[in-house]
Amino acid sequence: MRSERSLAPYLLFMPTLIYLAVFLVYPLLKALFMVITPEEGTGYTLANIYAVLSDSTFWEALKNTILLAAVIIPLQVFLALMLALFVNTKFRGYMTIVYLITIPLALSDVSAALMSYNIFSPSGYINKILLNLNLIKHPIYFFGFNATTSEFWVIVITEVWRATPLVFIILLAGLQMIGREYFEAADVFGFTKFQKFIYITLPLLKPSLQSALLLRTLFAFQIFGVVWLLAGRDIPILAGETFYQQTELQQYHIAAVYGFVIALISILISWVYLTFLKSAKEV
């Protein structure tokens, strides 16, 4: 009886453990194995790692991935926070707005990218409108090898539109968890609206903000579909290069190095955030 009871918890999380082992631990180990073995032949080698690290495309991909994350995430969090605060005033019909804001959640990154392309392509909405209004003579090219800056910003806009709702939902849920009495106490004790936001809302929203940031940062380093469809390799990114090495060049072991780098960055980010979260909980 006793041993059964002590086994029970392990049995209960067995499915999770098996899932993690099959879909996470095994692929990671396999990738690690591929990283340190040569494409052809036997034995162990650091040649793959060296090849990737000495390739300027890798550093550009790393830079672009970080740059995209650094631009997109703050924008998303800021927008989502504003939207959540606005919706949380619970004006008449606010649920309709919630549905409208969250529609992009249902879209895959590929469909989001295609919609974006339909707007910004040479024959897209924006160019059509501007041409019809005679504001421009020739269509503006947002995409192409010579237009990486505008490509970058179209990607930013698309990603912000696509993934802000996730942050919004997490923050809205977080806001609604904060008891009304904390704000009423603040009202009674003379807080201004701004002071309530700074001293009550933000600190009490911190756990939700951190969860949203963690999720978004992880996803940001896996960004692929939107960039791949809108810019191809004009703007190399880590996940894109992984795909490219794997399917186009069939350099499986090089692709494994890229994949492994993404995994390492993800683990690192999680670790940083979780340490941060833990200390916040103790507060």
Partner: peptide, 9 residues
Amino acid sequence: FQNYAVWPH
């Protein structure tokens, strides 16, 4: 307040 409303943070 009834449920104190002591700020938790």
